[in-house]
Amino acid sequence: MAGLRTLAFVLAVGFLLVILSCALYHNWWPLFVVATYVLAPLPNALSARCAGGDDLMSDYHNGAVDAGEFITGIFIVTGFCLPLVLAHAEVITIPAMVMSIIGGILVYGTIIAYTHFFANEGEDF
């Protein structure tokens, strides 16, 4: 249980960093990466659901699962590339970009840690 609370705290700190990177510099462009954080796990989850794998093989891979993972990979990299491109074009400052990217690492790390360690805890069989 302590692990789950730490995870929620880290997730909140991640989002806080992204919002701070916008608010401290009065430039709300980095908020678009929050949209990618929300959208990123969706194709993966949708395609894993629709792929039709049963309980015997939890690792069932067909074309739909591959497509979902591919699009999820695109969203994850977009979450990191958008602040980079914005900072390179000098729309946002370099500290704002660094804060956005660190926030992104925290949020994605939380999502990955949750799905690996905590998502299957409810199963008792």
């Binding site: 591919f70 999820t72 990979g73 695109i74 994850i76 958008l82 390179h88």
Partner: peptide, 18 residues
């Protein structure tokens, strides 16, 4: 491999958008 392929595809297009 599929995640890495998606990541490289996104990196390619973001390099161009940059």
């Amino acid at each position: 491999g599929v995640y890495a392929a998606g990541a490289f595809f996104a990196i390619g297009w973001w390099a161009f958008i940059d």
